[in-house]
Write a protein that binds this DNA or RNA. Sequence first.
DNA 1: GTCTATAACCTGATAGAC
DNA 2: GTCTATCAGGTTATAGAC
Lengths: 203, 203
Amino acid sequence: MEEIKDTEKQILNAAKEIFLQKGFDGARMQDIADKAGINKAMLHYYFRSKDRLFESVFRELTSNIFPKLFQSLMSEMPFEEKLKSIVNNYMDFLVINPDLPLFVFREINSNPERIANILKDVVKIDDFKNQLKGNVDNAISESGLENIDATQVVLTLLGACIFPAIAKNLIKIVFKMTEDDYVDLMIKRKEQLPKILINGLKK
Amino acid sequence: MEEIKDTEKQILNAAKEIFLQKGFDGARMQDIADKAGINKAMLHYYFRSKDRLFESVFRELTSNIFPKLFQSLMSEMPFEEKLKSIVNNYMDFLVINPDLPLFVFREINSNPERIANILKDVVKIDDFKNQLKGNVDNAISESGLENIDATQVVLTLLGACIFPAIAKNLIKIVFKMTEDDYVDLMIKRKEQLPKILINGLKK
DNA sequence: GTCTATAACCTGATAGAC
DNA sequence: GTCTATCAGGTTATAGAC
């Protein structure tokens, strides 16, 4: 019993690392087995196929962040507080999981069908659009900010947080940063972003 | 003569499409040949290997945009003008080439060595960091804007432009957009972004 | 549950005729 | 230059012993 769960967990952890870095197409079952310290046949014993293993990994990786993010976006707070809380929570998450956004966007682009099937369960998209728009529109108007499209605001907010994670490796190369430099950049960004964004949206 | 160039061009165009969508690992030489309307053996006749074909494609795709973007960032204009011109030029480019940023970041993450070799020629990174920082710092202080880290400004600017391109397919799903809706979103964004960003950086 | 060995398949690359 | 046929190597997946 204990050993079952343990092996399964080891496989999942190893698979997460490999899939996150290499993507579905670049990942090798052999590499996952090696990293998990077990045999290749075990992967199939526990997860039957590469597709199913990937699905489990994707589900585990995204099941937390999607609802959490949507929940933050939909919460009934004053705009400025809301924005600060999203930036704070999401940036903290991204410092710990910098590879996740690129992973998600990569898989959506290279194999939309596979992801569409998984996303159905993870996110209930139906009329999310309208709910979000109404919520953000309200928050904006109540705050006396410029009347600007809610979609544009959300994209600017998310882009400001997520882009530095997606571009992490290029940033480190171009600006000659160590890992510590990068983390420092992200932590400082948590304070500066709300200022930039809130100011920018004022009339 | 004419036919040589023609076939080579057909291959490159087909390879661009496939590599952009699937990435190096997901791309199949057979699919590229099919899309080019020629035989698989021809790919090797003209480009010798998948690696070399990819290198040609990557070079062609990035040779324009990297220098152009860096040049814009380094130009000696007042901050507001500079920002507007970057947003305008870059957003136009991204509407036509929405897949390119994700392609670049994906390849950097899944196979850093391959890209590092190619990037050496395309971008001369040496002390780009200092030049950029100095240039942006000057632009900011001359404009009487808040004293904010140049790196953060550049990241916010680029993220605001690039993120909607990277997230294109997810955006279309979540907000139930058609291709036309998306293009419209990006065009409107060109006008709204400078306002948001400039305002946000003022004291 | 775990392992070794191997099957079945796919993919990049080449040989050789035209 | 272009094609067909095929090789060589690697990858997922399974069979079967323990």
